[in-house]
Computed example of a mutant assay.
Amino acid sequence: MSTLASLLAGNREHTKRVAGSFGHLQEGQQPDAVTVCCSDSRVLQADAFGTDQPGEVFTVGNIGNRVVQVHDGATVVSGDVLYPLVHTDTKTAVVLGHTGCGAVTATYDALAGDVSEPPGIEHCIDLLAPRLEAGVERLPHDLDRAAAIDRLVEYNVDAQISALSDSPHVSEDVTLAGCVYDFQDRYGGDRGEVHVINVDGERNSETIRETHPEIASRVNRYWDY
């Protein structure tokens, strides 16, 4: 079976599952959350949160789980992230990074001057690099490459949360959550588990647990800097 035929067969199963789910969505949407996830094929964005029904989550995917774009020479929050926050009354934004992120790795290499990519990919790296540069400078000097990338994954999530928080177009009543999806056993939980590392700019795990006891067991930072 060709790849396309396989995808379409999967869609047939999808239609059976969601056939009765669109009635209240014909005229619009009001998703509970917008998730900004790396488009890495190993991270199933909506499924990672157990959402399998339309209308629940507004999903944004790109390499490096970026929330920013360049407009008229200025770096601004991307329209695909802003849309649900501005137009559908969505009050939760989740930035979901992941262990072993190739975009973070490529940016790490680019900051060291050791990368050559097609223009489209280079543009994505250029959006990540200014936010990761300070993180690279903070890395302990005795880390191996994998450990450095894992720390920068968290640093990148923090940086994207900061970009949302600093934007005048993101309402102050929107909850901003930074998370990491772990399929490489870095955090000690189950493979595929989502770990909360940042809420509304707060990075201290104990403070987050005290402020949000309902998610205390899922708060787990890899790097305190």
Rank of each mutant, 00 (worst) to 15 (best):
G178R: 03
I215A: 07
V86Q: 12
S162V: 09
T92S: 08
V196Y: 00
I161T: 05
K91C: 01
W223M: 11
D126N: 12
V36K: 00
G20N: 15
T15H: 05
G61L: 01
T107S: 15
L25E: 15
T211D: 02
G100V: 09
P130K: 09
V199S: 04
P130F: 12
L4Y: 05
F183S: 01
S39R: 00
D166W: 05
V43D: 06
R203W: 10
E210Q: 06
S39H: 00
V180E: 07
A110E: 14
D190Q: 14
D80L: 11
A93W: 01
V70D: 11
T35Y: 01
R66P: 00
Y83W: 12
H71W: 11
A163R: 11
V77E: 11
P213A: 04
G113K: 12
Y187G: 06
V60A: 08
N198G: 04
L176I: 08
N156R: 12
L164P: 09
I215V: 15
A110T: 14
R209L: 01
H195I: 06
E27H: 02
D47N: 08
Y225A: 13
R12P: 02
T75G: 06
S171T: 15
T99S: 15
R209K: 13
L128P: 03
R186G: 03
T99H: 05
P84M: 10
G10F: 08
D32S: 15
Q45N: 07
A103I: 14
E137H: 08
V95I: 13
H212G: 00
F22H: 05
N198A: 14
